[in-house]
């Protein structure tokens, strides 16, 4: 789908609430997180060897149930897997060398987990604020207030949040929380990055990682695609990907550069800012009602033209 900001802006201007365009313009420039104090993680798919240690570390840190197939087993790569309630991160295998200068390698591996968007759709969507973004950028979940509407799962452009459909009374939305414990209030501390044997995962400040990623691209233009996935995707993500093949070949989705959360928030804020529009509509309708009521009381005859008048009133 071709969805860009200009296109969207045009529609917002033309039809929707008065203040939406201004908000959009304002926020669109803010989506670049180069100098954020957010932490992040850089995934270099040319270094990943598919050992699944990150999955194991994640499983242990989050005390997830023991998987049916052992973490040392490579047969799981036969099908593309997605994060689930029992595995917040998974590694997938894609045929072909990870980069043009690694022709001896027959497969590319890419880790999937929550990308911790700088402007997360799920946080914007959450009805009660069960999903929040911490100071250092981790998107964390508080099951105590969650009511299980699963709108976050609809909202997430990366198809990450998973749900415990089998739990009867207290199902939770499960996803990578950057190992930032909501209850204890600890910051991001990813077990997967600490476990990675080849340091294909580098955890650090997002701004430093961006510099590092671009440095690697500049150093090895023959190896890397000159695009840091996550730098601008949906307004920027905390997890960045460096790839030796086009990102869409290794399970990453082509994304617009603006955050979808901004679209809905612009509409919502435009309509409800200071309650102007609801009040105005209430006043106008109330006035019309009062006027028509008086007119009906004055002439008790039914007005055969009233239908036509309704139309005119609405056209106004």
């Amino acid at each position: 789908m071709l969805l860009n900001r200009r296109n969207f802006l045009g529609w917002g201007l033309g039809t929707l609430a008065v203040s939406a365009p201004r908000l959009l313009g304002q926020e669109a420039t803010a989506s670049n997180g180069d100098e954020a104090q957010h932490v992040g993680c850089l995934v270099d798919t040319t270094l990943c060897i598919g050992c699944r240690k990150c999955e194991e570390a994640c499983n242990r840190r989050n005390k997830l149930p023991h998987p049916d197939i052992a973490f040392t087993e490579q047969t799981v790569f036969r099908q593309e897997r997605r994060p689930s309630a029992k595995a917040f991160t998974v590694v997938n295998e894609y045929t072909g060398a990870p980069s043009p200068d690694q022709e001896w390698m027959k497969e590319t591996y890419a880790k999937v987990q929550c990308l911790h968007c700088l402007i997360p759709s799920c946080v914007s969507a959450c009805i009660v604020g069960a999903l929040t973004k911490t100071k250092d950028g981790a998107v964390v979940y508080n099951p105590d207030v969650c009511l299980g509407c699963r709108y976050c799962m609809v909202a997430c452009p990366f198809q990450i949040p998973a749900y415990e459909y089998d739990v009867v009374l207290t199902p939770r939305v499960r996803k990578c929380e950057f190992c930032a414990n909501f209850v204890k209030g600890t910051g991001a501390d990813p077990a997967c990055a600490a476990a990675c044997p080849t340091e294909a995962l580098v955890f650090g400040q997002r701004s430093s990682l961006l510099t590092l990623a671009k440095d690697r691209i500049n150093r090895r233009p023959d190896r890397y695609v000159a695009h840091v996935y996550g730098e601008h995707e949906v307004g920027g993500t905390a997890w960045l990907y460096l790839t030796g093949r086009p990102a869409t070949e290794v399970g990453l989705l082509a994304m617009p550069t603006f955050s979808p959360a901004h679209s809905t928030e612009a509409i919502q804020h435009g309509i409800f800012r200071y309650g102007i529009i609801p009040f105005a509509v209430y006043g106008a309708l109330g006035g019309l009602m009062w006027y028509n009521h008086r007119r009906t009381q004055q002439s008790c005859k039914p007005d055969s033209e009233s239908g036509q008048q309704v139309q005119e009133a609405r056209h106004e």
Binding site: A125, V128, V145, C146, L147, G148, C149, Y151
Partner: peptide, 20 residues
């Protein structure tokens, strides 16, 4: 909803950015 017993939560926890 998964946690129907928690359906009253939006009355307390207001999240103005959420369309839902």
């Amino acid at each position: 909803v998964g946690r129907y017993w928690n359906m009253w939560q939006p009355i307390i926890n207001w999240q103005g950015n959420s369309v839902l």
